[in-house]
Design a protein around this nucleic acid. Structure first.
Lengths: 342, 342
DNA sequence: AAATGGTCTGAAACCGGTTTCAGATAACAC
DNA sequence: GTGTTATCTGAAACCGGTTTCAGACCATTT
C-alpha cells in the first residue's frame, strides 16, 4: 500500500500489450505513433483491443527519450501572481492543449537565481520550446537554450536576443490613452509606472509617453515610479497648481493597484479630483468608485499567438524573427468622465 | 539553424563526460546521483572537471525512466484564473522547489473532459505525486492514480476518495464571520455562494451557516446562489422588511466579486445600506467603498502543507489519511462598520 | 603464503519506448 | 513458373540515464 515505486513498476507497459495481442513491440509502437497506416487492419484491431483491455497508456518520458519529442513547452514567468501573466499563460495553455502539447510553467518570483535554476530545469526536461516572460538575465543559459529550441518572448524584449516577440503595441496604447484623456478634457498627465528594472515594455511605455507628450501642445506630462513615499509624490502632483484638470495614467495593472491605494491613502476623492486611466483591465476596475477606465490587453490572444509562433518554428519555419504587436481595447468607465469634453 | 531536433541530439551526454574523463558511464552516474561516497577522490575530481568543461546537464527524462523518480509533482487546478488557486499554487511551487521537486500544473477550466485528459497526461509523465483541486469526477482515473502515487486534496473533498486533505476550517470560518457580524450589530445575513456543483467546501460552508444560524437566536439567515437574475435576488433581500440591519456574507472571492458588481448594479449604497464580509482576501477588497471586511485564507501555508503531506507519503509514511484545516484570519474593513455595536 | 575482507570500478542489463533493417508474404506482370 | 515490387512484420539497436554484479586492487589477518 505504501511502496509507490513498486506500484509504478506495475504499470502496463508496451511489452505487456504486445504479448497480450501476440505481436511485437514494434507494431504496438507503430499503432501508438502516427504510423498506423503501416499496419494491417487485423493487427491494428488486436492491438487496439489489447490496449483497451489492459488500460495501457504510453509513457511520455520514454517516448521523448528516443524521439526527441516530449510534446512539452516551457514557460518562464516573472511573477505568477500578476494577473497579466496568468491571463497570458491561460492563453498559451489553451493553445498548447489544442495542438497536443503540455505546458510546464516556472515562476521566477522576479528572482534572477531562480530564473537560472528554472532554465536549467526546463532544459533537463527536454522541452521542445520556450516562452519567456522574464527579464532574461543569464544570457548564457538563454543563448544555449535558443540554440537548442525555438524561443518566444512575451511582453518583454531581452536585450540582444534575436527572437520572436509577442506583446502590446505600446506606442499605440500610449497614443490611445493620451487621446482619450485629452478628449475628456484632461491637460496634465502623470504616468505611473513600476520601476523600470530593465523591463522593456515599461521603458517603451515611458519613452512613448514622453515623446507623445512633447507632440501634444495641449498636454503636459510627467512620470512617477512606484516605490518609497509614493503616496506623497502623488499628493504633491495633485497639489501642484496647474493650467488644467489632472489625470493619472497607470502603465499596468500593478501600478493601477498601487495608485488606487495611494489615492485612498491621501484621501483623494477618486475621479472627481483627478482622472485615471490604466493599462490592463482587471476584474475590480469596475468596482472602484465609478469604475476605472482601462486599456485592456488581449491577453488570451497574446498567449495563443506566442504558442503559434513557437509551433511555426518547430515545424521548420526559418524566417527572420518577427514582432507581433497587439492593439489594446479602450474600456471607458467613470474614472475619466470627470471633465467630459462633449 | 532550423533543425532543432538535430540540435537537441548534439547535447552533451553522460557518455561524453565519461569518455572525456576517461571513466565509465557508471562512475559518472554515481557522481551525479547520491552515490558520490562510492567514488575515490581522484575519479570524482576528474568527473567534476569533465562536467564543468563540457557543461553537462543530466537528462531528467532519462533519469526518471529507470529510477522511477522524475522529481515531478502534478497539480490539477479547476480554475487557474481564481486567485485562491493561484495563491495556493504559489505556495505549492515554493515548497516543491525547496525540496528539489518541480511542479506541473494542469488547468481544467472546470471542464470534466479536460480533467480526464489531464489526469491521463500527468500519469504519462510519471509524476511522483498529485495535488488535486478539482471536483474529481472521473473516479476511475483518480483511483488508478491513487494506487500509483500519493495524492492530496486541496480545498475540496472528493466523495469516497480516502486521501489527505488540506483546506480551510469551514465551520470555524463561518463561526468567525457570524460572530463578527453579530458583534457589529447585523441581524439578517444572506450567504452568497457560487452554485454548489458538488464542491465540498461550498456545501460545507452553507451547511455550517445554516446550522449556526439555527443556534444564534439573534440572527436570521438565508442562502443565495450566484447565477441568473442574481442582482434582482439581492435587491429583493434588501427590500424585504426585516427586524434588523442586513449583511451579505460571500462564501469566496468569486462570490464577493459577483456580489459587489450586483450591489453596484442595483445602485445600493455600499455598506451603508448593507454590511458585507467575504471569505478570501483579494487585492482589491480595500479599494471598494470603505473596504471589504475579509476572512483571509492562509493560502501560502495551505499550498506548502499540501506538498509536505505529499512528501511524507513519498517517504513512506503510511498513516491513515489526515485532514489539515487552517483557520482564517479576520481582516476588518469598512464594509462591516455600518452598525457598530461598540 | 594463503585466506579474508573492504573499497572502487566498469561491463552489461535494464527502464519503456522508437527506429532501422532485413525478411516474409502477397500481388502483379511477364 | 519465375521475377519484381509493394506491403507488412519483428528482431535488435538505440535514446540517456541507473543499477546489478563480478572482478580488480589493496590491506589485514591467520
Amino acid at each position: 500500500m505504501n511502496d509507490f515505486s513498486a506500484a509504478q513498476r506495475s504499470r502496463v507497459t508496451m511489452l505487456d500489450v504486445a504479448e497480450h495481442a501476440g505481436v511485437s513491440k514494434a507494431s504496438v509502437s507503430r499503432f501508438i505513433g502516427d504510423d498506423r497506416a503501416l499496419l494491417s487492419d487485423a493487427i491494428a484491431r488486436r492491438i487496439e483491443q489489447a490496449i483497451a483491455e489492459l488500460g495501457y497508456r504510453p509513457n511520455q518520458m520514454a517516448r521523448g527519450l528516443k524521439r526527441g519529442r516530449t510534446r512539452l513547452i516551457g514557460m518562464l514567468v516573472a511573477d505568477i501572481r500578476n494577473p497579466y501573466s496568468i491571463a497570458v499563460m491561460h492563453g498559451v495553455e489553451t493553445a498548447c492543449r489544442a495542438h497536443g502539447y503540455s505546458l510546464v510553467v516556472c515562476n521566477t518570483d522576479r528572482d534572477d537565481e531562480q530564473e537560472r535554476q528554472h532554465l536549467a530545469l526546463l532544459r533537463s526536461y527536454n522541452i521542445e520550446g520556450l516562452i519567456v516572460n522574464t527579464l532574461g538575465h543569464h544570457r548564457a543559459e538563454l543563448d544555449e537554450l535558443k540554440r537548442e529550441m525555438p524561443l518566444v518572448l512575451v511582453d518583454r524584449k531581452v536585450e540582444g536576443l534575436d527572437s520572436d516577440m509577442v506583446g502590446l503595441n505600446n506606442p499605440q496604447a500610449v497614443e490611445m490613452a493620451l487621446a482619450h484623456l485629452e478628449r475628456r478634457g484632461y491637460r496634465n498627465v502623470l504616468l505611473v509606472t513600476e520601476p523600470y528594472d530593465g523591463t522593456s515594455s515599461r521603458i517603451e511605455r515611458v519613452a512613448s509617453f514622453q515623446a507623445q507628450i512633447a507632440q501634444r501642445p495641449e498636454l503636459t506630462g510627467s512620470v512617477l515610479e512606484t516605490g518609497d513615499a509614493f503616496a506623497q509624490h502623488v499628493e504633491h502632483f495633485l497639489n501642484t497648481p496647474a493650467d488644467g484638470p489632472k489625470a493619472l495614467f497607470c502603465a499596468n495593472g500593478v501600478a493601477a493597484l498601487t495608485c488606487t491605494r495611494a489615492l485612498r491613502e491621501i484621501g483623494c476623492r477618486l475621479f472627481e479630483d483627478v482622472g485615471l486611466i490604466a493599462l490592463d483591465d482587471l476584474d475590480w476596475y469596475p468596482l472602484v468608485g465609478s469604475g476605472i477606465t482601462a486599456l485592456a490587453q488581449p491577453t488570451e490572444a497574446i498567449g495563443a499567438r506566442a504558442f503559434e509562433c513557437l509551433l511555426k518554428r518547430l515545424r521548420g519555419d526559418a524566417e527572420a524573427a518577427r514582432n507581433v504587436d497587439f492593439a489594446p481595447v479602450l474600456v471607458e468607465r467613470g474614472s475619466t468622465h470627470g471633465f467630459r469634453g462633449d
